[in-house]
Amino acid sequence: MMNPLPKASMRKALFIWIGGLLAIVAIDHLLRLSSDNFYRLGLGENLWFISHWILALLSLVVLIRDWRSQLPKANILSLLGALLLAVVFYLVVIYLYVLGSGIDSL
């Protein structure tokens, strides 16, 4: 019998992803507010993107650590739904922050 994907693991991973992303944005914004030039300083481009990758890997580790050998079809659909939610949240938060604050433009 296959064990289902633990919903608690999914909730923890999404909580880490959402909370971590909001923390990265808050830290960048506070650094920019404390500098003389809001548009030049912050986390720095390399640290900004590396922190996103580290956060994504941490969330993925939390998500898959409780998995068993195979997932039933329903669990794969919930996993894809959680990943879609995480990607949509990422795009909305980052674009609202970057474009809304005037740091960058399309």
Score class of each variant (00 low, 15 high):
M1D: 05
P4H: 10
P4A: 04
L5P: 00
L5Q: 08
P6R: 15
R11S: 00
R11E: 00
K12N: 11
A13T: 04
A13Q: 05
L14S: 09
L14C: 02
L14P: 03
I18G: 01
G19L: 03
G20L: 02
L22T: 10
A23I: 15
I24H: 05
A26K: 09
H29R: 11
L30R: 13
L30G: 01
L31V: 07
R32M: 07
R32D: 08
S35C: 03
S35Q: 08
Y39I: 00
Y39C: 01
Y39E: 12
R40A: 10
R40H: 12
L41V: 07
G42A: 04
L43A: 01
E45H: 06
L47V: 15
W48T: 08
W48R: 10
F49S: 09
F49K: 10
I50H: 06
W53V: 15
L57Y: 06
L58H: 01
S59E: 03
L60A: 13
V61M: 05
L63A: 07
L63H: 09
I64Q: 04
W67E: 02
R68M: 00
Q70P: 00
Q70L: 00
P72Y: 01
P72M: 02
P72K: 04
A74K: 12
A74W: 03
N75S: 14
I76W: 10
I76R: 10
L79S: 02
L80F: 12
A82H: 12
A82S: 14
L83T: 06
L84K: 05
L84Q: 05
L85W: 09
A86H: 10
A86S: 15
V87H: 14
V88C: 15
Y90N: 06
Y90I: 04
Y90G: 00
Y90P: 01
L91I: 14
L91Y: 10
V92H: 05
V92Y: 03
V93S: 14
I94C: 08
I94H: 06
Y95M: 12
Y97W: 13
Y97F: 14
S101Y: 11
G102H: 01
D104A: 15
S105T: 15
